[in-house]
Design a protein around this nucleic acid. Structure first.
Lengths: 232, 232
DNA sequence: CGCGGCTTTGATGTTCATCAAGTAAAGTGG
DNA sequence: CCACTTTACTTGATGAACATCAAAGCCGCG
């Protein structure tokens, strides 16, 4: 799927409108609508390349994306998952010239890119906007750090259970869902190795805690999974 | 050492003055000076208690503090170290009612506490201030996440070497320094166990990579330590 | 003095990474 | 469309890294 620009999408109806952009004046909103670029990308496509220079803010509207970084030794780490209405790639956005993480779609996604300068102008001129942005920024950073610390508390089985619950409860809000990432990516997200992630999933399946059919996962034993997440 | 308030300390000469408070008008600065409370705490004293309600911003002026959280099972995790001119306890400050981490002095420290509402008023009325705050916030969050990911890349020896280099290069800028935290705290910071941290330090000493005298650490073999940090 | 917390070392077992090898699935080029 | 390559997935076996348990020394503090 190639990237396309669709200027008909309206900022007035955007999910961000009700959060960080709620305080914009009609004029500011109009400027935003005109200036922003709207993009569709397919699963696996790169939205932002690690190391490239920061020229805009990325607002994920639909889909799911991973925040990944590739280390000198070639090993990839996934810092977190960005969800719709997440203001992604933000971590270093005000303090660095380049993106420190790649943002890669893990589901077909839609996002808007807004020029860096326009947002900074809004920050300088619109106090309520600044406040909303700080709040958003704060909650996203907090979640990112909190999740990493939560993962560190657990070992293999607990981490895998944590991730399954995360997708079921936080992302899809359903006990049956299509796992959007590969086993390798789960491993990169929880700081373990593929083989051990696979082994653990197989074990959960054998113990009838989950059912795996292709990329679909169904949680069969919510209680036991939760127990493993907390104590395993 | 008990907490004391010393209203004579001037905001005009504060380190923060040159960063996030640089854009304040004389009047705003005066209001800040009058309103803020200045505190001195000794090593080990709690600056902010995890779970307490957020009523102000903490600006660390002198000293060093740890950002820690205690988990339900009693195990403590250290998310990071706050340095002077750090705007600490910020992670959840705009998005939560309570502090999610305790802030505890690990050296005799001085900090200012500014009323939450006053800062929010500044955010709403002073665009340049908002911008500075976002930049500061961004760089601190980014560093926090980046450090955790760096640690995850390494195992025991690499992590311990990383922390020693961190204190020597980033904090004290000297190859000889007083380690401000216990072995247990190092363990909590790098997600390992005390015994293994102790073993590793003993090993480094035996191999003449570092010298340990009481709480003083001297790096004897910078090259070897750096190698372990990168490849060990 | 005695208690608790921090430090240290050794011994032992668990958890996990690594290596190996095979299957399945998915893309590639003739 | 089929051989071919590549990538993801899977299981087992082995060893390395680390947690845990145990015991003793140290120090500060009531």
């Amino acid at each position: 799927m190639t990237e396309s620009i669709c200027s008909s999408s309206s900022c007035a109806q955007c999910g961000f409108r009700s959060s960080i952009f709620s305080s914009l004046t009609d004029e500011q909103l109009k400027e935003l609508t005109v200036q922003k670029s709207f993009h569709k990308v397919g699963k696996g496509e790169v939205i932002v390349e690690q190391g490239s220079s920061i020229n805009g803010f990325i607002f994920l509207r639909v889909g799911l994306a991973k925040l990944a970084r590739i280390n000198p030794d070639g090993r990839e780490q996934i810092a977190g998952i960005a969800t719709p209405n997440d203001f992604v790639g933000l971590l270093s956005i005000f303090s660095s010239k380049t993106y420190k993480y790649s943002i890669i779609a893990i589901e077909d996604s839609e996002y808007c890119q807004v020029d860096y300068q326009l947002v900074m102008d809004l920050v300088e001129t619109n106090g309520k906007f600044s406040k909303s942005l700080l709040e958003k920024f704060s909650s996203v950073s907090d979640l990112l750090v909190g999740t990493r610390l939560e993962l560190e508390l657990r070992q293999l089985r607990g981490r895998v259970a944590f991730i399954i619950c995360y997708f079921a409860n936080e992302i899809y809000k359903d006990k049956t869902f299509n796992l959007p990432i590969s086993r390798k990516e789960i491993a990169e997200l929880i700081d373990m190795r593929v083989e051990n992630v696979v082994r653990t999933l197989s074990e959960f399946r054998r113990d009838k805690i989950i059912k795996i059919e292709g990329t679909t996962i169904e949680i069969l034993d919510q209680e036991k999974l939760k127990w493993i997440k907390m104590h395993g």
